[in-house]
Computed example of a mutant assay.
Amino acid sequence: MARILSSDLRRRVIEAIEGGVSTRAAARRFSIGVSTAGSWHRHWRKTGSYEALP
């Protein structure tokens, strides 16, 4: 079953990636999946929003 992850975690992951950390390293650092980190970053680049879709 999927966990609910906070908006704060999303923001920290995206900021790490934008700061130069690879997506894989950010995922490992915050204990989330690589695909999750990548999809959050793509969503942020497309919309500028840290918030999850409804």
Results as ranks from 00 to 15, higher is better:
residue 1 M to Y: 14
residue 1 M to D: 14
residue 1 M to P: 11
residue 1 M to A: 14
residue 2 A to N: 13
residue 3 R to E: 06
residue 3 R to N: 08
residue 3 R to T: 04
residue 4 I to N: 09
residue 5 L to D: 04
residue 5 L to K: 12
residue 6 S to N: 07
residue 6 S to P: 02
residue 8 D to R: 13
residue 9 L to E: 06
residue 9 L to Q: 10
residue 10 R to S: 10
residue 10 R to M: 08
residue 10 R to Q: 05
residue 11 R to Y: 05
residue 12 R to A: 11
residue 12 R to H: 08
residue 12 R to Y: 08
residue 12 R to D: 15
residue 13 V to S: 00
residue 14 I to R: 15
residue 14 I to F: 05
residue 15 E to W: 12
residue 15 E to I: 01
residue 17 I to A: 03
residue 17 I to K: 01
residue 17 I to T: 06
residue 17 I to F: 08
residue 18 E to T: 00
residue 18 E to A: 04
residue 19 G to K: 09
residue 19 G to W: 14
residue 19 G to Y: 11
residue 21 V to Q: 04
residue 21 V to F: 05
residue 21 V to C: 03
residue 22 S to P: 12
residue 23 T to Y: 06
residue 23 T to I: 15
residue 23 T to M: 14
residue 23 T to H: 12
residue 24 R to W: 03
residue 24 R to E: 13
residue 25 A to Y: 08
residue 25 A to R: 11
residue 26 A to P: 10
residue 27 A to H: 03
residue 27 A to P: 07
residue 29 R to A: 13
residue 29 R to T: 09
residue 30 F to R: 04
residue 30 F to Q: 13
residue 30 F to K: 10
residue 32 I to Y: 01
residue 32 I to W: 01
residue 32 I to F: 04
residue 33 G to M: 09
residue 34 V to M: 08
residue 34 V to F: 07
residue 34 V to K: 13
residue 35 S to M: 09
residue 35 S to G: 11
residue 35 S to I: 10
residue 37 A to T: 07
residue 37 A to C: 12
residue 37 A to H: 05
residue 37 A to M: 05
residue 38 G to Q: 06
residue 39 S to E: 05
residue 39 S to I: 11
residue 40 W to C: 00
residue 41 H to L: 00
residue 42 R to Q: 09
residue 42 R to Y: 11
residue 42 R to V: 13
residue 43 H to T: 08
residue 43 H to D: 09
residue 43 H to S: 08
residue 44 W to E: 03
residue 44 W to M: 01
residue 44 W to I: 00
residue 45 R to P: 04
residue 45 R to A: 01
residue 45 R to F: 01
residue 45 R to D: 00
residue 45 R to V: 05
residue 45 R to G: 01
residue 46 K to H: 09
residue 46 K to G: 00
residue 47 T to Y: 05
residue 48 G to A: 08
residue 49 S to H: 03
residue 50 Y to P: 03
residue 51 E to S: 13
residue 54 P to H: 15
residue 54 P to T: 11
